[in-house]
Design a binder for these strands. Structure first.
Lengths: 259, 259
DNA sequence: GGTCATTGTTGATATAAATCAACGACAAGT
DNA sequence: ACTTGTCGTTGATTTATATCAACAATGACC
């Protein structure tokens, strides 16, 4: 199956009803705050209304299924707010989260007629949805859009390879260290310099972290506690942690230093 | 870094001297037996000489380094014969093979200025090499070529996600079963029907299998022995195995049946 | 303000796979 | 034909992490 197939349109497989933003469709993309970070950036300012016509903006509450594993692949999403988790499952319920799609990332690209993975919102999520025929049109009419998509997916593949190294060869401690580093926010210029340590945002639960790192929730919890005890990280808030010793964490992540 | 960067040309990082096919360059692609299976298929018959000019065909002995981890990303390869392994390593030598590129597959695509992975031949390998500026030209001038590449890499990503599920959540037995199934040859019409069982080609060593599946060589060896003992597979040849019970193996691979 | 469900933490024990170790099969070279 | 090195197999033991179990913290809801 190739990307050039045009499957018939069908209702989106959603467990809950979603919210659809109304009005001002034609202006939406022009004012999109994250266009600079996303594939939409590849489309000319003057032609933005084409993008607006091709997409619709939707808002979903936490824990909403965006993509059901094995369901018909009819849409493609670009995340404009929040975090979406992508995963694959085994018949007995074991699950592997293959990635978190944060702001600016896309999801839903596939060659097959059905999705080989699932997707669920972690927190409140806003996306731009492109139906497949619309995506085809953009790809064909805007070479820069296609090139940008190729670049993005090449990056995804590199991340996937890094994650395979983590899952296949790293210890629990190394996995947690790598995860925290990968999710570390770049130090913002407006950062509260009175509070020390680099912020790490963890909107997902311990279950999600465990399913992403190929561990159990107990091991995740114990390892985070150990790092806290060793003053490498701080913070009692479950969804926000601060890294006190970035370089220690970097050594840990690459297996330089274990104790 | 984007695909549109043109890094300066530099000598290829090869431990050994490679063999370069000479003469008849312009005809080479026309007679390429595997074009139908590869990205080159996206280029029109009449324009094949453009492809021939953009690429050079090279032959390498087993265990040749095609790509050194971290070296400048100057080339892109299309495998026309043999098998190449792709991998990532940790400073202490732990290694994860992220994939095997068999006939028809490409390798070497990256957004960065350097490769984030290594590549080494498993057996005798023949490739078509495209230097990066040449690849750029093809991508820009032949939309079908670019589309084909996007389709291929989308498939690679799906495979990577499947492998993450394997590495993060499957048992040793499930990993071996999945691996054998994935490498099972499609039953050829000329197959020797006197010999029962589906052929599985394993050109790589036990070390490579272990590094691909996130196991040790001992576990790989023990698990294969167990499957042989249970009459699910046969064959004493280390690089060729026959699957006797495909459906048993499928159940095993998806965690349905373990004993 | 109490009940209940959800999420996370910590401790005790079990286990799958790693590690350590010995050896067999085979091919290359002398 | 013997040595040497590579590769794979099998057995004994260790260990990192899973599993099992109890409990604490939090927030939703009546």
């Amino acid at each position: 199956m190739s990307l050039t197939d045009h499957p018939r349109t069908a209702p989106l497989p959603l467990r809950r009803r979603f919210l659809q933003d109304t009005g001002m469709e034609l202006q939406r993309c022009t004012v999109c705050g994250i266009r600079g970070q996303s594939i939409c950036n590849a489309i000319n300012d003057k032609e933005l209304e084409i993008l607006a016509q091709a997409s619709s903006r939707l808002t979903f509450p936490p824990a909403t299924t965006l993509i059901e594993e094995g369901s018909p692949a009819i849409a493609f999403f670009n995340v404009t707010k929040g975090t979406v988790k992508l995963f694959k499952s085994l018949p007995d319920g074991r699950r592997q989260i293959t990635g978190f799609a944060d702001v600016g990332h896309f999801l839903g690209l596939t060659n097959a007629r059905t999705y080989s993975f699932g997707a669920e919102t972690v927190d409140t999520v806003q996306v731009c949805r492109f139906l497949r025929p619309q995506l085809e049109t953009l790809l064909t009419d805007y070479p820069l859009f296609e090139r940008r998509l190729l670049t993005e997916i090449t990056g995804e593949l590199a991340e996937a390879q890094e994650q395979m190294l983590l899952l296949g060869r790293k210890t629990a401690r190394e996995r947690i260290a790598s995860f925290l580093l990968a999710r570390m926010m770049p130090p913002s210029p407006h950062a509260d310099s009175a509070v020390e340590g680099q912020m790490v945002s963890l909107p997902m639960t311990r279950v999600d972290i465990a399913d992403y790192l190929g561990l159990t929730i107990e091991t995740v919890s114990r390892t985070l506690s150990a790092l806290r005890r060793e003053k490498i990280i701080t913070g009692t808030d479950n969804h926000g942690i601060r890294v006190l010793a970035v370089s220690r964490l970097e050594d840990l992540a690459s297996g330089q230093d274990n104790r």
